[in-house]
């Protein structure tokens, strides 16, 4: 497959990138690793006239500690995320999910920010950002701003990024003491998209679940939080029965896709099973 021809720019700094992207207008696309964009171009499903490659922007790469959070540059590759001691220590959920993304080659080229900006509801990392209450930093013609993950994913392949805006960093609050997490991904072969994925973060206290967060992959047009399950679990006894009961509410407010990888009723069922398993695993029950 051969893409239609396009112009290519590789700006050397963020200011230049924002300018080039803005000048390119509607027909410009950001290239942030290309692991999703290039297949789309090769199948000629999209015809951008300009690709703005952020691969030269060292300032968008790397992972650092910043008080009660870690900050991950948007152009940090999945492989770099996986190898980061900071991520492993403060956001193990992200490490676990990132390990399931694509294959080794994809993880060496694909970026965290690229994955979030692409906003594929079958992608794992948007769910993780949502579950961990990440803050997404963007810069555009109007200057920098911060978008909470809960306001970032608007629709299928659609984010709150404005025209000319570039995602620059993802700030992930450290999970404090007592929290533990787990990601249950269900797919048919290794290196496939999630049919359904469930992320769970649980804080235990004195034999009960003090606080719980549950995020869903591929149960709608965006990643979702299962707030009803979270509410039922908060303050509940840390028992298998409680978790199983709460998990049954997971499909509330979801709109599972109906496609070749699975019918909606099957996905709804999977979401319940995987939620139970993810929460039990996270809570160590």
């Amino acid at each position: 497959m051969i893409p239609a021809s396009f112009e290519y720019e590789r700006p050397a700094n963020l200011d230049a990138a924002v300018r080039v992207l803005q000048d390119g207008g509607e027909d410009a696309k950001v290239l942030a690793g290309g692991q999703s964009l290039l297949p789309v171009l090769r199948l000629r499903l999209s015809y951008p006239e300009l690709l703005v490659d952020l691969g030269g922007l060292a300032e968008l790469r790397g992972i650092r500690e910043d008080g009660d959070a870690i900050v991950i540059g948007s152009m940090t590759t999945h492989d770099e995320v996986l190898k980061s001691e900071l991520v492993r220590q403060h956001a193990p959920l992200l490490a676990q999910a990132t390990a399931t993304v694509g294959d080794r080659q994809v993880r060496h080229l694909g970026t965290f920010g690229g994955s979030l900006s692409h906003a594929d509801p079958a992608g794992d990392l948007p769910t993780i950002a949502l579950t961990l209450d990440a803050q997404l930093h963007a810069t555009g013609p109007g200057g920098p701003r911060v978008i909470p993950a809960s306001e970032f994913f608007l629709d299928y392949l659609t984010t709150a990024l404005r025209p000319g805006e570039i995602l620059t960093a993802i700030r992930i609050p450290k999970l404090g003491a007592g929290w533990s997490t787990h990601y249950e991904k269900f797919d048919r072969v290794a290196q496939a998209w999630s049919i359904v994925g469930v992320a769970a973060a649980v804080r235990r206290s004195n034999g009960s679940i003090a606080e719980a967060r549950v995020g869903l992959t591929n149960m709608g047009t965006t990643p979702l939080r299962a707030s009803l399950v979270e509410d039922e679990l908060s303050g509940a006894a840390a028992s298998a029965a409680t978790v199983a009961s709460a998990s049954r509410s997971v499909t509330e407010g979801t709109h599972a896709p109906n496609d070749l990888a699975g019918h909606a009723d099957y996905r709804n069922h999977l979401a319940q099973v995987l939620t139970r398993r993810a929460v039990l695993a996270a809570a160590g029950i």
Binding site: L43, V189, Q191, A192
Partner: peptide, 16 residues
């Protein structure tokens, strides 16, 4: 043909 790419036409790899 709706299984027109290897995303939908599933081939197992060694890891499967």
């Amino acid at each position: 043909l709706t299984t027109g790419t290897f995303v939908d036409y599933l081939l197992p790899s060694a890891s499967d």
